[in-house]
Simulated assay, not measured.
Amino acid sequence: MNIQKAKIEDHICLTEITKKSKAYWGYSEEQIEKWTNSLTITEEYIKQNPVFNLIDENQIIGYYSYLTLEKNQVKLDNLFILPEYIGKGFGSFLMNDFLKKMRNEKTSKIILDSEPNAEPFYKKIGFIKIGEFETSIKNRFMPIMEMNL
């Protein structure tokens, strides 16, 4: 198992991982379809942002990506894993790699918008909830979380 920088041609695979991972939380196919634009990883996105794949036995099973907001502050934009790997430590493996990179880059603050079901995962790692916003689904709120390094 290792982590490698994503290639432009990985965009289709990463989009599939994103959609499957999101569906893991019980969202309908119709809802996933409504979110297609926000769940799609494009070639351009990979060209413009740091994206790293989790590889197991020559298969991409997950990935993360981030955006630089300002000096020393980043936003974890995506962290997704295929459903059959959720709950088995792979998310923590990805997150540890991300946090190590951020410390090496002298990042002082990380923010993210969490899938509501993933909030406990981020809290366990040390993120704190600083706010929330309502999503396109009525009465569904996305936690806004941050971690100071």
Rank of each mutant, 00 (worst) to 15 (best):
K19Q: 14
I110L: 10
K71Y: 00
T42V: 04
T135M: 12
P83Q: 05
N104W: 00
M147D: 00
F93N: 08
Y66I: 03
K75D: 15
I61G: 09
K75T: 09
S21V: 02
Q31D: 09
M95S: 10
E132D: 10
E16F: 07
E146Y: 08
N2G: 02
I130L: 05
K47P: 09
N37D: 15
F98C: 10
N78G: 09
N72G: 00
T18E: 04
A118S: 11
I110F: 04
R103L: 07
F141G: 02
G131Y: 11
N148F: 15
G26E: 13
Q4P: 00
F90K: 09
K19N: 07
T135N: 12
L79G: 10
F98V: 03
R140G: 00
Y85V: 04
G126N: 13
T36V: 02
I3K: 03
G26D: 04
G89F: 09
N96Q: 14
M142L: 13
K71G: 00
F80K: 03
M1P: 09
E9D: 15
D77E: 15
P83L: 01
S108K: 15
S65P: 02
S108D: 14
N2D: 05
G89N: 02
T42Y: 05
I130V: 15
D113T: 02
L67W: 05
L79Y: 10
I17A: 05
E9C: 11
D10L: 09
L67A: 07
F127A: 03
L76H: 06
E105H: 12
I81Y: 00
I60K: 12
I61T: 08
S136T: 10
G62Y: 02
H11Q: 06
V74N: 10
K34D: 06
G89I: 03
G126K: 08
L76V: 05
E57H: 12
K100C: 15
Q73A: 15
T135D: 14
Y24M: 10
S21A: 08
L112E: 11
I130D: 12
T42Q: 00
K20A: 11
K75V: 04
K123E: 13
T15A: 07
F80T: 01
P120A: 05
K88T: 01
N53F: 04
N78R: 15
D56L: 08
N96K: 13
G91T: 06
K5G: 02
K75R: 12
K7M: 14
L82V: 03
I61Y: 05
M95L: 15
S92G: 13
N2C: 00
G89H: 06
S28P: 04
F98A: 01
S92C: 08
T68H: 04
G131R: 07
Q59C: 08
M142H: 11
M1H: 07
K5S: 14
Y27V: 07
M142P: 01
I125A: 02
E70V: 04
K123N: 14
D77Q: 14
I46T: 01
E146R: 06
E16I: 07
Q73D: 08
E29D: 13
L69T: 09
I60V: 11
K20T: 07
S28M: 09
I81V: 11
E134D: 00
Q31Y: 12
K124Y: 11
K109S: 12
Y24E: 09
N78W: 08
N58C: 05
I12N: 03
E115G: 05
E146W: 05
I110W: 06
K19Y: 09
K71W: 07
Y85M: 09
N104S: 12
A6R: 06
